[in-house]
Design a protein around this nucleic acid. Structure first.
Length: 558
RNA sequence: UGUCCGAUGGUGUAACGGUAGCACUGCAGAUUUUGGUUCUGCCUGUCAAGGUUCGAAUCCUUGUCGGACAACCA
């Protein structure tokens, strides 16, 4: 049988070659977040990439926390990250922390000092920065650059022992102050931080910089392919330099950079997401408007939809902005198969069926999911007074309007044909009730005489329906690229003031037993998910995404 | 007048010297007890100029445009 050939992305091609050439017998990748915030959809791309490689090539993937800066990192973030990786459906082979390697890193630092390749600098951060100058100008060497090995050893030991104040000295690698690569201009390896560490406790008051810890951590774990984002490309020579000092065997993780995910109408940097949370622009990291994994989960996105999205957007090195509509496509695609249909009226108006017996209630059978036979059926109660959607009725309707209008007939989904006979208005001219007659022969929505109605609308029984809170979300930003700003602007200027609309809706009784996290399609209205704010007294739903709406286009274009 | 990276329809992504394909979007139509789904068709692309070659998105040269890099952040 001919196997369907999937196109490999450039990273998979590299790995395929490395396996074929015998460079590696198997591969190990890793996902290395810093626990200083919640994971977002951009991280999901990286997670799917790294763990996807493990699955494709039958390798291994570690989860490693790059926890080298205790002033920014918290256990809360560690836990959320672990939860998010699992929720996405991935199992890591090892759970590691960069802090596991602090002793080894310290030993290597001593070694570098002894080799005359690192020195203690006592200048201020400002001085150090100034001396690095800029990429087009050669740097200036620190006056402390050529201390004796003995003095460096003594001072570094004193740093470790807590004898010096924060900010008073650092350990620097002695590389090349004239390098066109700024990262090679004697980068800082260790700084003094008199902070206890979530895992290492009070053992250290000096902590390694990311650049000094990251490459070696990959090396220690035997990572074969270190996948990271583009901005680390210029760091690669530095990682290689450190490894060259500690290992001459030439065995190196191969770092491969790819372009991070950008989504339209979304900000993705952790700093900005943190600012949105701290500034109360949203209600926490898991606010359903946030592009965090926890936000998407609460919104009602499924792991499958996110993984399909990640697969589809591909991996390359060029900068990209993905249309957020693509993410919406994948959740619709997934939920179309999985979500049971129910009826909910978001903006109700009462319909009285004048020829239907008062006091009578009957039960009508409805399909739970036309896309899935096994989803079964349920019963809907029907009586003389029902609610329909306000915008499913028009007094002066254009010809293309297939819904209820004076003298017109529509099908009530799974119920009857009804015909509008009259409307009742208040003194301001607002319609308060619509009076209709029904055709008893059309029970179930069938048309025994073969006559056609163009419109089918949803409804709920006024006698049995329940009230619920619906949270309707729109994009958080009004600008396609909130990072593309004029000088005097901030991305916060483009916050969408209407990103959340809260309404009260009427739902069919069936939903009273819905549980937190349950997802439904409200027919003709969109996909909704029961929010954790729900209680026994009141259900709260998040709108995950609306349905494609070709009527809105028609009505807009006249 | 630094170093590094990149450039394929509106948005992404394939094609590995041999017919520019796929997905999303958009448009048109069919089906439909959701103006949903499904199905069919269509529009739109190789940054530019030279060169190598029977043949270039692909290789070479030059240019243009975009991005990253100057934290005791990661």
């Amino acid at each position: 049988m001919e196997e369907k050939k999937e196109a490999l992305n450039f990273i998979e091609q590299i790995i395929t070659n490395d396996l074929a050439s015998g460079k590696h017998k198997s591969i190990i990748t890793r996902f290395p977040p810093e626990p200083n915030g919640y994971l977002h959809i951009g991280h999901a791309k990286s997670i799917c990439l790294n763990f996807g490689l493990k699955e494709t090539f039958n390798g291994k993937t570690n989860l490693r926390f790059d926890d080298t800066n205790p002033s920014k990192e918290e256990l809360e973030y560690v836990n959320s990250i672990i939860e998010d990786v699992h929720w996405l459906g991935f199992e890591y082979d090892n759970l590691f922390y960069a802090s596991d390697y602090f002793d080894q890193l310290y030993e290597w630092a001593i070694m570098l000092i002894k080799d005359g390749k690192a020195y203690v600098d006592e200048q201020t951060p400002q001085d150090i920065s100034l001396q690095r100058t800029n990429p087009t100008t050669p740097g200036i060497e620190s006056p402390y650059r050529n201390r004796s090995v003995e003095e460096n050893l003594r001072l570094f030991e004193e740093m470790r022992a807590g004898k010096h104040d924060e900010g008073s000295m650092v350990l620097r690698a002695k590389i090349d102050m004239n390098s066109p690569n700024m990262h090679m201009r004697d980068p800082v390896m260790y700084r003094i931080m008199k902070q206890s560490h979530d895992r290492a406790g009070d053992k250290w008051c000096i902590y390694p910089m990311y650049d000094y810890a990251h490459g070696q951590s990959d090396y220690i774990e035997g990572i074969t392919h270190s996948i990271c984002t583009l901005e680390f490309e210029v760091h690669r020579p530095l990682y290689d330099w450190f490894l060259d000092q500690i290992d001459t065997s030439g065995k190196r993780p191969r770092q491969i950079e790819f372009a991070r995910l950008n989504l339209s109408y979304t900000v993705m940097s952790k700093r900005k997401l943190l600012e949105l949370v701290k500034g109360n622009y949203v209600k926490g990291w898991d606010d359903p408007r946030m592009p965090t994994i926890s936000g998407l989960r609460r919104r009602g996105y499924t792991p499958e939809s996110i993984r399909n999205f990640a697969d589809r957007i591909g991996v390359a090195k060029r900068e990209n902005i993905i249309d957020v509509g693509l993410l919406e496509f994948f959740i619709r695609e997934d939920l179309n198969k999985k979500a049971n249909r129910v009826m909910a009226v978001l903006d109700p108006i009462k319909v009285v069926i004048t020829n239907y017996p008062e006091g009578k209630t009957e039960m009508l059978e409805a399909q739970n999911n036309p896309e899935d036979e096994t989803a079964g059926t349920r019963n809907l109660s029907f009586s003389r007074e029902i609610f329909i959607e306000r915008d499913d009725f028009m007094e002066d309707a254009p010809s293309k309007f297939f819904r209820l209008k004076p003298g017109g007939e529509v099908r009530l989904r799974y119920a009857y044909f009804i015909k509008c006979e009259s409307v009742v208005k208040d003194k301001d001219g607002n319609i308060t009730e619509i009076h209709c007659t029904y055709d008893p022969e059309s029970k179930g929505g069938k048309s025994p005489d073969g006559r056609k109605v163009k419109g089918t609308i949803h409804w709920v029984d006024s006698k049995t329906c329940i009230d619920a809170e619906l949270r309707l979300y729109d994009r958080l930003f009004t600008k396609e690229n909130p990072d593309d700003l004029e000088e005097d602007e901030t991305y916060l200027d483009y916050l969408n003031p209407d990103s959340l609309q809260i309404i009260s809706a009427k739902l069919e009784k069936h939903l009273e037993n819905a549980e937190i996290g349950n997802k439904f399609q409200f027919e003709r209205k969109g996909y909704f998910c029961v929010d954790k704010d729900s209680s026994h007294k009141k259900l709260v739903f998040n709108r995950i995404v609306d349905l494609k709406d070709s009527w809105s286009k028609i009505s807009k274009n006249g």
